[in-house]
Design a protein around this nucleic acid. Sequence first.
DNA 1: CCAGCAAGTGGGACCGCTCCCACTTATTTC
DNA 2: GAAATAAGTGGGAGCGGTCCCACTTGCTGG
Lengths: 360, 360
Amino acid sequence: MPDPTTAGPDDRHGEESSGPGAARAFRVATLDEVAQRAGVSRSVASRAMNNSRNVSAPKREAVARAAAELGYVPNPTARALATSTAGSVVLALPDDDPALFGDPFFSQVLVGVAAALDRSELNLTLMLASSERGRERLARVLRSRRSDGVMLMGLRKDDPLGRLAAQTDVPVVLGGRPLDADARWYVDVDNRGGARLAAEHLLRSGRRHLAAIVGPVDLQASVARHHGFADAVAAERLPADWVEHADFTYEGGAAAMTRLLAAHPEIDGVFAASDYMASGAMRALRAAGRRIPEDVAVVGFDDLEIARHTEPPLTTVSQPIRGLGHEMATMLIRLIDGDTPTPIILPTHLVVRGSAPGPV
Amino acid sequence: MPDPTTAGPDDRHGEESSGPGAARAFRVATLDEVAQRAGVSRSVASRAMNNSRNVSAPKREAVARAAAELGYVPNPTARALATSTAGSVVLALPDDDPALFGDPFFSQVLVGVAAALDRSELNLTLMLASSERGRERLARVLRSRRSDGVMLMGLRKDDPLGRLAAQTDVPVVLGGRPLDADARWYVDVDNRGGARLAAEHLLRSGRRHLAAIVGPVDLQASVARHHGFADAVAAERLPADWVEHADFTYEGGAAAMTRLLAAHPEIDGVFAASDYMASGAMRALRAAGRRIPEDVAVVGFDDLEIARHTEPPLTTVSQPIRGLGHEMATMLIRLIDGDTPTPIILPTHLVVRGSAPGPV
DNA sequence: CCAGCAAGTGGGACCGCTCCCACTTATTTC
DNA sequence: GAAATAAGTGGGAGCGGTCCCACTTGCTGG
C-alpha cells in the first residue's frame, strides 16, 4: 500500500525533494500534513484555519501550532477551485490612451485601488486590453471565472470592452461613465461641475472672451467638461462655441490654442480640459506674444504635479484621482460581497494659482 | 451506481436554464461536458484542447466543435491546481517612491511588461508592497506558489523585499540592481554610462564648472549616475565634488540647485539625475537670474515627456523605460521556462535640446 | 430514563483539470 | 507469422482545499 500520506515516520514535511536537476522543488506543507501533525482530521484543521465554529479550543490551538511549525500557507488555487471564487479582481484598461498614460494619472488610480484592496484578501490583476489579443484574454478571463470582479477604465464610445463586460456575470465597476451604455455601477468625477467652476472663475475675474480646449468627443469625461464650460458661459449669455478639440496631450493643446487665437484674437480666458493641454496652450500663447495671466488667463483640469511647475503655476480643477481608484475598488468589493452600492460622483474643486488669479 | 458523469440524457449543460436577461449563476461548461458531447473520454478531450499528440484527426475535430458549441473556456484554476503552476506572475514595487510614481515612469514599465506577457499565457498581478500588510501578502504569495515568478522594482538598500525574494524558490527578476545583495537576474539601465555621457556633453561644449544633483544614496541607480558624472569630470581633472543630493522630485531639485549656487556661484553646467530635478533646478536658476543655457547649461536624465516641454527644452539622457519592463518580463518568462538567461544592461543615449546645446 | 439538542468531530464527495498507465488496435520488422 | 513498435483511447488517481453530513459526546428537560 504505497500511500505517501501514511507512509511512515520518515515522512517529514518535505524540505526538499530532489527535483530533476534544475530548480529545487520545495514542497510546501499541505493542510493534511498540518492536520496529521496536530492529531486532528483535515476537516477540523480546515475549520481551525478559517477560524469558523465547531472547533474546541485545544484543537484549534494545536492546529495553529502545527501550522506555524510547518510554515503552512494555504494553497489559494486549491481554495479557489473548491469555493469557485478566484480571490482576485482585474483592472482592465486600454494602454494606448494618452489621457490615462501620459501622466501620473494612472499610477495614482492604481495606488488608490491597491489601498482599498489591501484590506480585503483580493489580489489585483492588471490587463491592458487594447490589442486584439488583450481583448480576447480579458474575455476569456471574464468567462472563466478566474476573477471575482472587474474594474474598467477609459471606456470610449462603442468600446467593445463595454459589451464584453456587460455579457459577463461577474460584477463590473466602471471608472467614469461610458457614453453609450448606461452603466449600473460606476465611480466618476464631477467633470461637469468642475469645468463649470473653472469657467465661472474666469468670468468672475472679469474675462469676457472665453475659449475652451476640450478632449475627444468619444469620452464621456471630455463631453462633460465641455458641457460644464458651456453651462457657465451660456449663463452669462456669452458665446459658448469658441471650442477646439484636442487629444489631452501637450502638443494637441498647443495646436488647438493656435487655432483658437487665429479664429478669435480677442480671447482673454482659456479653459483647457487637462493640465497637459493647458500647458501646451500656455506655450502657444507665449509664442503668440500673449502674457499670462495679464492678456489671457488659463485654467486647466486634473491638478497633476505639472500644474505646480508651469510658469506661471497653473490654476486648475483638482480631482481626487486616488479617491477614484479607491472608490472603484471599494464598490467592487461591496458588489462581490453581495451588497448593492450606488454610483458615486466624486467632487472636484478649483485650485487657484498664477495662470488665472481670482478677482482682486 | 450514481455516477453523475453517466447520469443520463437530461444532464445537459445549463446554457438556457436561466433567462437571457438577468444573467445569474451562469454555469460554464466543463471539459467533461465537452467530452461527452464530442463522444470521447475526458482524457482525449483534454489532449485535444491542449493540442498534444495522440488524438486522431476526427476526434480532435469533434472536440473542437463541441467546445465551440458549448462556449467552453477551460477553468484556469483547475488547471493551475492540477499542474501546480499559477499562470501568473507578480510585479511588486513600493508605492511610495516618487522616483517610480511621480511621473509616467511606472506606467511605461507596465506597458512594456504587459506587452511581453501578452505573448505568453501569463497574467500580471500587481502588488504594491510598501505597507507591512502588503509585504506580508507578498510573502504569502511567494510561499503559496500562487505565482510563477516575480519582478521586483525600486529596491532600496536593506529593503526587506529583497530578502523576501531571495528566500523563495520562485524565479525572481529585478528591475535595477540592489545595492547590497548581488542579484542573479536583473535588467538594468546603463545609468553610469548615461550620466557620463551627460557630463561629457557639458564638458565638450566648453563648460568647466560642473555640478550635479543626484538622488538618494540608497538607490543603486542613483549611485551609478553619480559615479558616471564623477567619471567624466575626474577625467578632465576637474573637481567632482560639487554634488547635492535630492529625492528625484521637482522641489528637491530646486532646493539642491539653490544650495549649489550658494556654494559655487561660478557653476556653468549642471547634471541632474532626473528630469524632474532638472526641471526644478531650472526654476531655481532662473530665480537666481541665470540664463539657460547661456550662463548655465542643464542636462537631465530619463527623457520623460516633461523634458520636451520645459523652457528651454531639456537636454537629457534617454533610457528605454518600456524596454526595461519588456526585458524584465521576457527574462522572467525564460526563467520560468527553465532557461538560464543572463543579466541585461540596456543602453542609454543623449538627447540634445535647448537647455544644453552641443558645441557649436 | 430517555428523547432532544448543541457542540464537536472526521469521513468522504466534490471543484475541474492533467497525466500516468493499462489496454486495444494498426503498422512494422525480422 | 509472431513479436515488437507505434498510435490512439479512456479509466482513474491525484492536485489541496471546502463543506455537507452522519456520527459521537455531554447536557438539558419532560
